[in-house]
Amino acid sequence: RLGANTQLTRRGKCKNIYAAAGDLPRPAAPLSVRRWVNIEQQAQYKFLLQLDGHSCSWRLQFLLATNSAVIKQSSYYWEYWYSLLQPYQHFWPFWEKSPYDILPILENVTQPSMERTMRRIGARGSALAHRYLNPHARQCYWRALLELYSNRLQQPPSLAAWPRAQPVATAPREGWHGPKSARGRPRIDWEGLHGKLRAWRRSDRESLRRVVLRVEAELAEAQLSGERLQSDVELRSPDIRASQQ
C-alpha cells in the first residue's frame, strides 16, 4: 500500500506526504459530496476550504469576502495582495507538511472553544477583501503598476500614437454580486461627487503620485545596496529553495 519512495521513521510514522489513508493516525471522518454551489451559497458555511489549482486560486478573494473562516492550503503561488494576508489572522493555514494536516486542524477549529476565534478570522478576512480587493482598490494598484512600468520605457506611451484606442468600459456593478444585490452597488457614489469631482480627482492623483514615489525610492535603495530583488513567488518556489540549500 505504500509507495516505493516511502520512508518510515523509528516510531513507524510515514514520512511520505503521498502515503495511503490507512497510514493516518486516525481514520478520516466520512465527508459528504455536494454539487457545485455558488459563492453566495457557500457563505452559509462556517468554514471554507481554499485549494490551489494549476496556479494560485482566483476564488480566494471571494471566499474571504463571505465572512466565513477560510482554511487555506500553504502554497508558493502568490498574487500581489497576498502580502496583506496573515495566517491565523485572516485565514487558517494547512498542508504545510501533508494534505492530511487537515484532519487534526478540523478537529481543532470545530471545538466550541474555538468558535470566537474562527468568527474573528472570518470577519478580519472579509474586512480585508472588501477594503483592498474592491474594483476601485484594484484600479489603484494597476494604475500605480502601469505608471512604474512606463517610467522605465525609453519613450513614454501616448494615446496620440494609438488613434483607435478606446476607453475601457466600466462595470455597472461590483464583483460577483447580482444586479439586485445591495452589495453590488459601486463603492464610489459618482453622482454624489457632483461639484466635488475635480477636487476628488486631484486628491486621487496626489495619492497615486506618493505611492509611485515611495516604490521608486525603495527600488533605488535596493539597487544601490546591490540587493537582488526576488518576487514572493520566486522565494517560495521549491526550485529556488533547493538551490539555496
Rank of each mutant, 00 (worst) to 15 (best):
A171I: 00
P30N: 04
A199G: 03
Q166H: 11
T170H: 14
E227H: 10
L193K: 10
R34K: 05
L224T: 15
I121E: 00
G195R: 12
P112H: 09
S83H: 15
L103Y: 10
N16F: 05
G125I: 02
L51I: 14
S150D: 10
E79H: 12
R124A: 07
D101Q: 13
M114V: 02
L60Y: 08
E147M: 09
P99E: 05
R202H: 12
Q44P: 08
A28I: 11
S126V: 02
E147L: 09
A171W: 02
I188K: 07
S57C: 11
V109Q: 06
I71H: 01
N134Y: 01
R34L: 13
N108L: 13
Y45N: 12
A43E: 03
W92G: 01
A43V: 02
G226R: 00
G226C: 08
Q89E: 14
H90M: 05
L128R: 01
H54G: 07
L84N: 07
W81K: 01
R241D: 02
I102M: 05
S75A: 11
S231F: 03
S32I: 06
L128W: 01
Q42V: 01
Y82Q: 04
F91R: 02
Q7V: 13
A182W: 03
R236Y: 00
C14E: 03
V37C: 09
M114K: 08
L51Q: 09
C14P: 00
R26C: 05
I105Q: 09
K13I: 02
L224M: 10
V168G: 06
Q154K: 03
R59C: 04
A65F: 06
N38I: 00
S75V: 11
Q111C: 05
R210M: 04
V168A: 14
